[in-house]
Design a protein around this nucleic acid. Structure first.
Lengths: 229, 229, 229, 229
DNA sequence: AATGAATGAGAATTCATTCAT
DNA sequence: CATGAATGAATTCTCATTCAT
């Protein structure tokens, strides 16, 4: 799978739990998918539960068999999809030896999650900021784990002497997240052309790496031919 | 560092409501301030008009003497405060000769607007993404003007040979805005300590400049001696 | 006079809400009936939606499952009840050969619709004149069809040589409607005794016929023996 | 003043109380006039007090210096204008010897009040039926006096042997009022052409007289050359 | 498990009325 | 007398949630 398309792919591990429960997981998944679409179009507050139900092809009441309430549908989206992002990201990072590759992996993975799921991009960037109680109780911990993961990339890079020691790994992680989020938002609100997002991703990775690497070794900083692992 | 406070200062210039009514500006301003506080705490949708009224010390109905409806209170916050940011930023940029100074000015001005107004930081970063109709009709044009302004900094830096020619000014502007917005959000949600925000700002400016400047001249890229490592 | 009751009877034919929902028609009908009662007592504007809901024994929100809004409840009253009047009237008129019988049928049918429904009399006569937008969009077309129908009675009577040729059928129709509406209103505001309304109806029919018939044939104009002097 | 225009003229006795009170009466009159215009356009409930104030060229609060509240503005319109109608009508009726002339005077006076004051026509016919509490407390007594006056015309006609003895004067009065009101309403909602209203008035007078007069004396019922007194 | 009709709490907004100036 | 900014009670309508079927 050497193709550019696959570079970003995170994708679901497949929600069809082919175990005992016949189609419950299916229905839950269908509702979740519908909710992502609806939340993306209208935002959490403007989205009506009946909108989600209609989009999922179920009755209003059915949603309450799978989710405590409307807010928890959003919570589950975060848990599910962002949890998945974290798992994938962690797995990828440990497999990569250099800080350059890891930073690139962060960029590629986060934007890749969104590229083929524009709706999810909007839900995550837009709705993550809606309900503060929600944000603090559910999204914030996930978000912290994400920041920890990315900050560790920079911190370990510093220990290896590759990243400037005067850079705060935490600030770098927060700024990188913000930059990625901002690119995703402006991309989602604009054309939504995948090629453009990939180009922006490369530019951002370049910018961050040049900005973060130790100036010393005077070697070719970037070798794009090695990318795409 | 006796001027640190003023480095960031943007602050009100008088929110002229453009009509002669004597104490109207006062009321309008009071409502606006209250709304910023309430929107920051609860978010746009969860904030009730009566919350704003109580916080402003006026009757519910009074709000409708100054604003068409709840949504337009948010609109005015953007117009007022972001319009001010744009004006200040533009004025500062033209006065600065080098791209380094200009990039720093962007960082310092944007975060400075928020530094002593944590609530505004939250309203702007959190609520800017709430109502899409709103976002598109009112905030988007302002946002575009902002991006144009920042992209021009990078573009002019390229013409002067100071910024890498393979960097997209537009992508850089989008990423920089995202990074600033992300720093502001995480700062507002965390401690809200002004000193910390300023330190983060320096780090970000450093990161972006190192990442964006042409590698060629092999000179000390930055005068880092002036700021906290 | 054992048939006096039936002379006036128009009565429901089943208010088919035109969709298959089982007990919907019931609810819708209950709400409509309650609305007639409430509108009659308080007038359209003074009537609160919650009054109608309470009178119908449903929750406020239920009303909005069957009607777009409060105004459309009134609209449906007109459409339903007046549409029914028009249908009945048209059917009766074609079955009657002489102009005398037809004029009497107009009087009897219109007042008969109201006789056992004092509330409806008040709603129709009082509220028909409330909301001009409403009046013009929904009631006016129905009203025009009514006037056409009645004017045709006089016009055909003229062609048959029974009605004075110098009488404007249109003016006669307008005046007759006004007289009927006026009798209904004063009756509803006063005692509401059906017998009295029927007596007034006879008097009016007599008055109009004597006034409208051609003087020529010098024959016993009316068979007054059948009704109370 | 033999001209057709004057036939109908009722007109104000002039409200400018040129006594001590300098311009108060003026202002009250201005408000009343403005209210007639506004109530006619929007109906009582949809008309805002501030609309009336603007139309009258005074401040909202000023209205409350002259009227207890919004409802009493409408009350005063009835009292003032309808009181005037009653006075004029009574004065005219006593001066006329025959029942024919009197019935014509009723028609001409009532429609004449409206002809040159189309707004008042709408206020009286439309708004008289709005607020039931109002209607019953203020308009109803005036209305009763009106009916008494008209019924007396028919009753006296009966005593003189000119009107059919089997006609109920009260029913005739109610029907005549309704017919006049109906003509006024349909006229006001339609073109509002004074000539047309006058023609309709003649038709109605004709209809009622032919319908009400005793058939006996076999004399020329109508002599239009004598009209116009 | 699934449905969707019914519920009713809740919120935005309007506007008659007041009253300090 | 006159003003008009301010008030806040009142009302419509929405929509998350429930629960009988």
């Amino acid at each position: 799978m050497p193709r550019a398309e696959s570079r970003f792919s995170v994708r679901a591990v497949r929600a069809t739990t082919s175990d005992g429960r016949p189609r419950s997981a299916d229905k839950s998944e269908r509702i979740l998918r519908a909710a992502i679409r609806v939340f993306a179009r209208k935002g959490f507050y403007a989205a009506r539960v009946s909108d989600i139900a209609r989009a999922a092809g179920v009755a209003d009441g059915t949603i309450y068999l799978y989710f405590r309430n409307k807010e928890h549908v959003l919570v589950r989206i975060f848990e599910d999809r962002l949890g998945k992002l974290l798992d994938v990201l962690r797995a990828r990072l440990v497999a990569l030896p250099t800080v350059e590759e890891r930073v690139r992996a962060v960029v590629v993975t986060q934007l890749g999650l969104l590229e083929d799921q524009r709706d999810l991009a909007e839900v995550v960037t837009v709705n993550m900021r809606q309900s503060s109680r929600l944000l603090r109780r559910y999204a914030a911990p996930l978000f912290q784990r994400y920041l920890d993961l990315v900050a560790a990339v920079f911190a370990e890079g510093q220990q290896a002497g590759r990243i400037r020691s005067d850079l705060s790994p935490r600030v770098a992680a927060r700024a990188l997240w913000g930059a990625l989020d901002g690119l995703a938002l402006t991309w989602a609100l604009a054309d939504g052309d995948p090629a453009r997002l990939r180009r922006a991703a490369d530019q951002l990775a370049e910018l961050v790496l040049r900005g973060a690497l130790s100036p010393a070794p005077r070697e070719p900083v970037l070798d794009t031919s090695r990318r795409g692992a």
